[in-house]
Amino acid sequence: MSGSITARITLPEQAHRGEVVPIRVLVRHPMDRGIDAPGLRPVPRRILHSFRVTYAGEEVFRMDLSPGIAANPYVEFTTVAVETGDLVFEWIEDGGAVYRREARLVVA
């Protein structure tokens, strides 16, 4: 299952082989922490609980998120430029929905 999600992925268009590339990711999500209070209609927790990035055949980054991550999560990490190809970004939401985005990195 895969849905659409608004994400802004910032990375250099080009990099040299072996260069450490910074990647910044903003994704639109309320990160609902859930409500379970007496007298209120219970609202289930709904957050993006995992985020993984694969590139050139391997997982290069993974993050487990909690309700303690700010709404519209922001993540910054680095990866070594190994070959021209797509970085695949995948978020898993409570309930099992998976969101996927790709961004191309050209390696010279």
């Binding site: 993050m63 991550i69 700010a70 990490f77 070594v80």
Partner: peptide, 20 residues
């Protein structure tokens, strides 16, 4: 709050995020 899993492919052990 969060856990980041890294490998040598990261190149540097540097992460940033925003927390509540």
């Amino acid at each position: 709050v969060a856990r980041f899993a890294l490998s040598p492919r990261a190149g540097r052990a540097e992460v940033a995020t925003r927390i509540r």
